[in-house]
Design a protein around this nucleic acid. Structure first.
Lengths: 335, 335
DNA sequence: CTGTTAGCGCGTTCAG
DNA sequence: CTGAACGCGCTAACAG
């Protein structure tokens, strides 16, 4: 690898001139030309380490995912990569698998790699392991969950409002026994989505019976069990609060040979490839992944440029509801 | 950030001793103790750049994905991350979206970031943009497709044999009109899978009619059209060669209100979450993702330690076939 | 075993 | 506008 010194010697100028050339300063045309030739001839490439030693910048950001197994995760990573790439940045990726201890360790690890910023997906404010973000010297963006640290931006979606919409519609279609499979209420998004469900019932002055609520644990298996339980409660419509559990719920429905959009109405949170291959297609709440990714990167880079001086903000984006025929009017109710 | 010099001064020893301590050399117990205290008191952290300037190592590897939208991709990334993490390495991730030009550019980019090695997923030998791998100074592992460069390892699966198994079974179950949706034959995996199909027919002395082959383009939409076409050919069983096209095929099946495992037999290449939620579950060829990821990382690290001296090899892993009841005996044929 | 010191490649002073 | 020299933090080679 050619160094700046070699380029200088080859070009017959000083290293200072080469450095200035590389950093966009103007210098004598003949020198400029000689340097350009030298760089080309020697195939000079800047040295990442030497540069970083001075600038303390890597032009890379750390991306901490809570999991990697959903359409949401995969699309988000892809989007962030796309946007970042255009700015000459790259992703350091890691998956903390919903484990607060791992997240702490990974944050430290990324810092030791001198990332210029951090994007964290799905971290809970309540985790004590996040203390290290309190006085973090690099910019941090939280996605999915709001994090209340003075410098940290949060990008979230209207979990509550969008869930409310779907349940409202079910109620409007005369479903009186609506079953819901919810996630553990220890988590922010789980709570918000549940609140949206309650909002809908309240607005329409209806009551959600406790026996029509199944508390799952995010796993597909709990979705499966939940749906079996709810069917035993003779619900006519079901809403599932997350992707994995909806897979399990669908499995139960199919095993029992029930037909969605006929025997039962169904909707769930989170779009996935397969939501479109059923007939009818499934009604789902679709998060604006591209917008989330774009905004996250834009804000992060802005903070990097401002040396992390910007005050933390919360951005709330709107989900899309894909209305399909998996929800129908309750057939047991006539007008 | 405290430096090694400050630690040395605080501990009352020389920088050399501190450096040696940090690198695991033995030194006088009293000095060891003083240094440890100093490191703790000053909260010393090694400087990534200074270290790299000497060692030329980043303990990071570049991971180049062809896409990020399948279960396969997501699981592979997660696995590689897991295995790498234990060794103190991290992933630089990028997605070249099946674009040879982007791959070339990304390789250069990663090299400029001084990655210690490269894992490339799904690159085709025929791409001229891959020339840069010919005399690559860092280790390279190719996943999915074999790459014939002297230093490059390839980790592939038995596309051909596993496809052959599935088609053979369909033939054994008296299916005479088997439809297949295949991918463009410009790509390695597409060719292998197609060859597996042909193998099965040949072995059983049967003929695959050209009119029962649909050439898709990997897209879901082509799968949709392909299935509609094949149904018009009155096939009794269908095999789809990749994930996206199988989604489209399933959509058509459902739209036409056909029941898999009754009206039609179905199988496809690549496992996905939703393959399990149908009733019956879908027969799929499942790639050994974890083994692929583990082996890739192991070989890569081995090559890094050997300074890329190891001769390139091809490793072929075996797919798993998940046999489910989506394939049945051809009901129109009696014994 | 320990201390000293010369670079690694670059940016940024200075003095010219 | 240019060139020389220093220092970023660390390792390794050498001398003690």
């Amino acid at each position: 690898m050619a160094t700046i010194q070699e380029v200088a010697k080859y070009a017959g100028v000083s290293v200072g001139s080469v450095s200035r050339y590389l950093n966009g300063h103007k210098l004598r045309p003949d020198n400029t030309k000689k340097i350009e030739e030298a760089i080309h001839a020697l195939d000079y490439k800047e040295n990442f380490f030497a540069k970083g030693l001075k600038s303390n910048e890597t032009h890379s950001i750390g991306l901490l995912m809570n999991n990697m197994q959903s359409n949401f995760s995969a699309s988000l990573v892809a989007r962030i990569d796309d946007v970042l790439e255009k700015e000459g940045y790259t992703i350091l990726l890691s998956n903390y698998r919903d484990d607060p201890n791992r997240i702490e360790q990974k944050i430290a690890f990324f810092k030791s790699r001198a990332v210029d910023g951090l994007i964290i997906v799905g971290a809970e404010q309540s985790w004590p392991q996040l203390e290290c973000l309190k006085n973090c010297d690099i910019p941090v963006i939280s996605i999915i969950t709001p994090l209340d640290y003075s410098q940290t931006d949060s990008i979230i979606v209207d979990n509550r409002a969008s869930t409310e919409k779907v349940i409202s519609r079910m109620l409007s279609l005369s479903h009186e026994r609506i079953g819901v499979i919810v996630a553990p209420q220890t988590d922010y998004v789980a709570r918000e989505r549940f609140l949206g469900i309650l909002d809908a019932f309240e607005t329409q002055n209806k009551l959600l019976s406790e026996s029509n609520i199944y508390y799952g644990d995010y796993s597909k298996d709990s979705g499966k069990r939940g749906m079996a339980y709810l069917l035993s409660q003779e619900v006519s419509a079901v809403f599932v609060c997350n992707y994995n559990m909806s897979l399990g719920a669908l499995q139960t429905i199919h095993e029992k040979q029930l037909v969605i959009g006929k025997d039962i109405s169904f909707a769930s949170y989170d779009y996935f490839d397969a939501s479109d291959i059923f007939y009818p297609k499934l009604t789902v709440i679709k998060q604006p992944i591209k917008e989330i990714g774009t905004l996250a990167v834009e804000r992060l880079l802005e903070k990097i440029r401002n040396k992390n001086q910007l005050q933390g903000q919360i951005f709330t984006l709107k989900n899309d509801v894909l209305w399909r025929d998996s929800i129908i009017k309750n057939p047991t109710k006539s007008e």
